Simulated assay, not measured.
Amino acid sequence: MTKLQTEASRQSGLIQSLSSWLRQSMQVFIYGVGAWLTLKGEATAGCMIASSIIMGKALAPVQMGISSWKSMIEARGAWSRLDALLSDLDKRETMELPPPQGNLQAEHVSFAVGLVPILRDIHFSLNAGESMGLIGPSGAGKSTLCRLLLGLWRPQHGTVRLDGADIYTWDPQALGPWLGYLSQDVELFSGTVAENIARLGNVDSEKVITAARRAGVHEMILNFPLGYDTPVGEGGAVLSGGQRQRIGLARALYGDPRLVILDEPNANLDEEGEAALVRAFAALKSDGVTVIVVSHKPTLLSGMDKILMLKGGQIALFGPRDAVFAKLMEAQNTQRPEGRVAP
């Protein structure tokens, strides 16, 4: 892989150097011919300068095309992948299934990007209403696993099942209302607060307010200039990072989701926002919603039923919360140098 990248960079640099040399050589040639014709009285200095400008304009698109060739290749590759994904969506099983209860199983799931493995042999199960904290170092595959559990991506090996059915074969339109997802990078759409919480569908005022209350943002939204009708701007530009995240949480809780996955939901939250998040977890648990939370803060994970720790794309630890935390504490104490007292 490194050898191919080095060869591609070398070829790209060579082509750009040749194009630059060709353009400068042509300019010198034009000036030379123009000067020779001017001395012979067959052209003027203005004609020489005009010819140089015309030649530069003619060669500019060629050089621009060469310099942007890499971007065009990447755009073509992205279009091919997107076309394949959308074509695959059209082939999904469309038979209507009953509303899910939230029983989730990952059966020896593996996923790779190209030749690079991201997840290997991930297997666990959660009963409806159980909660799980997902922890691990950066790059361990936590966000990738979240997308697989939601059926957004298909694993190369293994199956993710929701109530016994392969979640990837569910009709996305039918499954969507039963899922809630908050990604690391919260993306809001140009529209009002209510429209974003309602997932850009028909705004049901009662459901929107219920979701906002469950997320603990009802009072915050009422303080906006137009309340729920406040435009958020493209990408939520008029809101702070914490406000976007809390509205994104309300969007994830909109309706009656049976599986909610939150990826670093406290990344931009203050103490008030974290307290509201903990209350939201308790409400989801009482409603029998299956919850998965990616976080490293003990305050958020203290109410989880189970903990799954990823390391290097594999399961390092999985089990009841107290048992996993006890093993982590034991490992930390073992690694601590002898004679050193823990702070």
Rank of each mutant, 00 (worst) to 15 (best):
A78S: 15
N268P: 10
D185Y: 05
T290L: 09
V291M: 15
G319D: 12
N266G: 11
G102K: 02
K207S: 08
H296F: 15
M304Y: 08
S183C: 07
S71Q: 10
L182R: 11
G151P: 01
I49Y: 08
E74H: 02
D305P: 07
M64F: 13
R120D: 13
F325C: 07
M48V: 14
Q245M: 08
L262C: 08
S138L: 13
R161I: 07
G339D: 05
E93L: 11
D83S: 10
K207Q: 14
V260T: 02
G191A: 15
V260I: 14
F189G: 00
P225T: 10
A50C: 11
M220W: 00
I209Q: 07
E206D: 11
A60F: 14
Q105N: 05
A211V: 04
R246P: 02
E264K: 07
K70E: 08
T192R: 05
L89Y: 08
T38N: 11
K3C: 02
A128Q: 03
K91A: 14
L249Q: 04
V193G: 02
I247W: 04
K327I: 04
G139Y: 06
S71I: 02
A43P: 03
L182E: 05
R154C: 11
L200V: 10
A276W: 08
L308M: 15
E107A: 07
Q243F: 12
L310I: 12
P337Q: 07
F111Y: 12
L179P: 01
S9P: 01
L37S: 08
S110P: 04
L18A: 14
I315T: 14
R154L: 14
F224P: 00
E274W: 03
P117E: 03
W170I: 06
A45T: 15
A140T: 03
P117A: 07
